[in-house]
Design a protein around this nucleic acid. Structure first.
Length: 605
RNA sequence: GCCCUCAUAGCUCAGUCGGUAGAGCACAUUCUUGGUAAGAAUGGGGUCAUGGGUUCAAAUCCCAUUGAGGGCUCCA
């Protein structure tokens, strides 16, 4: 994996990077010209474009963006050179004496401590500026040599957004202008076209069109309502999970949505994560909380009887519904919601079986990914950071290091490629997220897998080991199918609404050519339904062509067109969602086809 | 939570300069009985998100609230 990375040119070294970086400077010049009081901060290239953050006396309007963009083209056309200059901190302070944010950056550079985001740097950097036309910016580069190397018809400003100075919500909110820049107009158009295509596949749009879920203002933000078609998809996912988990030795349990405060004090959720929980309700002087996680309940089930090493690993699984108070601005379709049903399980294992159990979970992920046709994924191992001990993280550095090491060892022994992300662990242990991408390039963190060395102890969970002594088990939290919400949001985009047959809410739609075949269609539908196939018959007043179109738009995998000929000979004319046709197919043959697709959870039509 | 943008029929959207609403699809009825992505006619359907304000007059202008979207922050 690392070999590949070295072969690919780093983004920082590409021409596009220099173009975008330079476009950001040019944009800053245009903004400063428009509002001379502007304080400018940082403006890096990003994936597909660039941004620049400003502190401005007033809000930028869409009309301002047009003006800025126009002015940018003029600056580009004037062909100004980008000139680099190295200077001392004192000189730099002189140049940027009216730019408080730049002064703060210089401070950081001078101490050799911080980059523009306030993160520590390893080596003390040089202080340099880049100047083009009238605009001087504190910048390490690199840039194009002159503005003409930017294609003015391949640059476009996209939107204004808020962003905190140095990404810290305690700091001032700045105005961030996003732009995109490419080598030529064709590339820009291609990019804009991709954005349009992405919108068509967006799960929020398709979810509404295909009647999978809805939100209602009166129910509340982030609280999805699953429509009957969504309900079918949920049932199918649960069947799948039940099937594979049963084979893998899981036991299914069920737990309440509510619990007394005491449970979450013991688990550590209240001290660490009260902010993300719905506030308590008080009954007879006792506080109750709706659960943000299922684990404390499972721990109690573990504790409900004495455990022997012979009982372990104990794997408790539940599709438990949790509630988390996500901040209002963080909600997004099905991807970030406030009520979610998790494909949850907790595996209690002695330390010596950890690696085996951990790898079994990874194996389960891979089985799911095969079924859904997910071939690109990255395992991210999130570890703790010393500074967070006792705050974000349980204060036991020895166990942190030990567990993180166990996970690393398990993954490298098992040949699982992963990348490490420091300081993003769960409060009770290292976390392994599986990151995947939907067909429209949206990044999803779906599956998650956490190793908990802390909470079992808080719950006094023990088992009697071979030596007859009490021992505390490790707990693996895992959710390969994530939550129904996020998983189905992903699947909608992954399949663009064209669900494989086994997942399709409606598998077969029977379409009569005239109403003379209605009775036959109804009995055919009943026959299919009796076999557990999700079939419907469209007996409306529309013409056959319109019915086919409707079924097609609804992305029903199989349409059975039935006219006089079919009724007489007991066959159907099969039209698949992809437009292919098989006329004169015996009903039994069609049934065999559907049943095969369903039984094997085939991705084929 | 913060910044910006948006909210008109079930859906997608139009509505000019402030003069109390329109289209297509969907739905219902009727005609049509048809061979693989829209047959036709007629009809019903809107306190223009909610609450205030300005005005002779508000979908339109202003304020607040609610919800959504794009970001930031956060994401057990």
């Amino acid at each position: 994996m690392s070999d590949q990375e070295h072969q690919e040119e780093r983004y920082e070294d590409t021409e596009l990077y220099r173009i975008r970086h330079s476009a950001a400077h040019i944009m800053a010049q245009a903004v400063v010209e428009l509002m001379p009081e502007a304080k400018y901060t940082i403006g890096p290239p990003i994936e597909n474009g660039f941004y620049y953050d400003f502190d401005l006396p007033r809000t930028l309007t869409p009309e301002d963006l047009e003006k800025i963009e126009k002015r940018m083209r003029q600056i580009i056309a004037a062909n100004h050179k980008f000139e680099r200059k190295v200077l001392t901190a004192e000189e730099a302070r002189q140049v940027f004496k009216d730019q408080p944010y730049k002064l703060e950056l210089i401070e950081g550079l001078e101490q050799g401590g911080m980059d523009e985001y306030g993160n520590p740097l390893e080596t003390k950097p040089e202080i340099s500026t880049y100047t083009h036309d009238t605009f001087v910016d504190l910048c390490r580069g690199p840039h194009v040599e002159s503005t003409r190397q930017i294609n003015p018809s391949a640059v476009k400003l996209m939107q204004v957004a808020g962003a905190y100075w140095r990404g810290d919500e305690k700091n001032k909110m700045l105005q961030r202008v996003y732009g995109t820049a490419w080598k030529n107009a064709t590339e820009l158009e291609q990019y804009l076209w991709q954005l349009e295509e992405a919108k068509k596949r967006d799960h929020r749009k398709l979810g509404k069109e295909l009647q999978i879920f809805t939100f209602d203002e009166e129910v509340g933000p982030g609280l999805p309502l699953w429509l009957p078609r969504g309900g079918v998809i949920i049932d199918m996912l649960e069947d799948l999970a039940r099937e594979l988990e049963t084979k893998a030795g899981y036991d299914r349990v069920r737990t309440p949505h509510l619990t007394k405060e005491d449970l979450f004090i013991r688990s550590g959720h209240l001290p660490y994560y009260a902010e993300s929980m719905y506030p308590p309700m008080e009954l007879e002087g006792v506080k109750y909380y709706v659960k943000p996680m299922n684990c404390p309940f499972h721990h109690k089930i573990f504790a409900s009887q004495p455990r022997s090493y012979r009982d372990l690993p104990l794997r408790l699984a539940e599709y438990g519904t949790c509630y988390r108070y996500e901040k209002s601005g963080e909600l997004m379709g099905l991807m970030r919601v406030r009520s979610m049903q998790m494909n949850d399980a907790h595996i209690y294992t002695p330390e010596d079986l950890f690696e085996q159990e951990f790898m079994a979970v990874i194996g389960l992920y891979q089985q799911y990914f095969d079924i859904f046709g997910i071939d690109k994924f990255v395992m991210r191992l999130s570890t703790h950071h010393k500074n967070g001990l006792g705050k974000k993280y349980v204060d036991n550095e020895r166990l942190w290091l030990k567990t993180e090491d166990m996970v690393r060892r398990a993954m490298s022994n098992g040949g699982v490629p992963y990348k490490e992300v420091p300081d993003e662990a769960a409060f009770y242990g290292p976390k392994i997220d599986v990151q995947i991408w939907s067909a429209i390039g949206r990044e999803f963190t779906l599956a998650t897998n956490q190793v908990d060395f802390a909470v079992p102890e808080r719950f006094n969970l023990t088992f009697i080991n071979r030596e007859g002594q009490e021992e505390t088990p490790l707990c693996i939290h895992r959710a390969p199918l994530s939550t129904h919400e996020r998983m189905i949001g992903f699947l909608i985009e992954h399949y663009a609404g064209n669900f494989p047959v086994w997942l399709s809410p409606e598998q077969v739609r029977i379409i009569p050519i005239t109403d003379g075949q209605n009775d036959y269609c109804v009995s055919l539908m009943k026959q299919l339904k009796d076999l557990g196939i999700r079939a419907s018959a469209d007996l409306g007043a529309d013409r056959m062509n319109a019915k086919i179109r409707a079924a097609q738009l609804f992305k029903v995998p199989y349409m059975l067109v039935v006219g006089g000929r079919e009724v007489e000979t007991g066959v159907v004319s099969l039209r698949k969602r992809d437009g292919s046709r098989a006329d004169g197919m015996p009903v039994s043959e069609f049934i065999a086809l559907v049943q095969q697709r369903i039984a094997t959870r085939s991705r084929e039509l």
